[in-house]
Simulated scan of single mutants.
Amino acid sequence: MKPMNYSRPIVLTVLCLFAGTAYAHPGHPPTGFAGGFAHPFLGVDHLFAMIAVGLWAAQQGGRALWAVPAAFVGAMGLGGVLAWTGGALPHVEMAIALSVLLLGLLVATQRRASVIVGMGIAGTFALFHGYAHGMEMPQATSPVLYALGFVLATACLHGVGIAGGLLGRRAMRMAGIGIAATGAALLVLA
Rank of each mutant, 00 (worst) to 15 (best):
1 M>F: 12
5 N>T: 11
5 N>C: 10
7 S>Q: 14
9 P>L: 09
9 P>G: 07
10 I>M: 09
10 I>D: 00
10 I>K: 00
12 L>G: 05
14 V>F: 11
15 L>T: 09
15 L>H: 10
16 C>R: 04
17 L>K: 07
19 A>C: 11
21 T>R: 11
25 H>T: 15
25 H>V: 15
26 P>V: 12
29 P>R: 13
29 P>T: 13
30 P>T: 11
31 T>D: 12
32 G>V: 12
40 P>D: 02
40 P>K: 01
40 P>A: 06
43 G>K: 06
43 G>D: 12
45 D>Q: 08
50 M>E: 08
53 V>H: 05
54 G>S: 07
55 L>C: 07
55 L>I: 02
57 A>E: 00
59 Q>M: 06
59 Q>R: 05
62 G>W: 04
63 R>S: 07
64 A>N: 01
65 L>G: 08
66 W>T: 10
70 A>K: 04
70 A>W: 03
70 A>L: 15
72 F>G: 02
73 V>A: 13
75 A>P: 01
78 L>G: 05
81 V>A: 11
84 W>K: 13
84 W>M: 15
84 W>Q: 14
85 T>K: 13
85 T>R: 15
86 G>F: 09
86 G>T: 10
86 G>S: 11
88 A>H: 13
90 P>M: 04
91 H>K: 14
92 V>T: 10
92 V>S: 06
96 I>M: 01
96 I>N: 02
97 A>M: 05
98 L>I: 12
99 S>A: 09
100 V>A: 02
102 L>V: 10
103 L>G: 03
103 L>N: 03
107 V>P: 01
108 A>I: 06
108 A>D: 00
111 R>W: 14
111 R>D: 00
114 S>H: 11
115 V>A: 08
116 I>T: 13
117 V>A: 15
119 M>N: 04
120 G>S: 08
120 G>F: 01
120 G>N: 09
121 I>A: 08
121 I>V: 15
122 A>K: 05
123 G>H: 06
123 G>M: 05
124 T>C: 10
125 F>R: 00
125 F>H: 02
125 F>T: 02
132 A>Q: 03
134 G>Y: 06
134 G>N: 09
135 M>W: 13
135 M>V: 15
135 M>F: 14
135 M>P: 02
137 M>F: 08
138 P>I: 14
140 A>L: 15
143 P>V: 12
145 L>C: 13
147 A>I: 02
148 L>R: 04
149 G>F: 03
150 F>L: 06
151 V>T: 01
151 V>Y: 00
152 L>D: 05
154 T>G: 04
154 T>Y: 05
155 A>E: 00
157 L>P: 02
157 L>I: 05
157 L>N: 05
160 V>L: 15
162 I>N: 01
164 G>R: 06
164 G>D: 03
165 G>V: 02
168 G>L: 12
169 R>T: 15
172 M>Y: 06
172 M>F: 08
172 M>A: 10
173 R>H: 11
176 G>L: 07
176 G>H: 03
178 G>M: 04
179 I>T: 09
179 I>M: 03
179 I>D: 05
181 A>R: 12
181 A>E: 11
183 G>L: 05
183 G>N: 07
184 A>Y: 09
186 L>Y: 06
187 L>Q: 09
188 V>Y: 13
188 V>M: 11
188 V>T: 10
188 V>W: 14
188 V>H: 10
189 L>V: 14
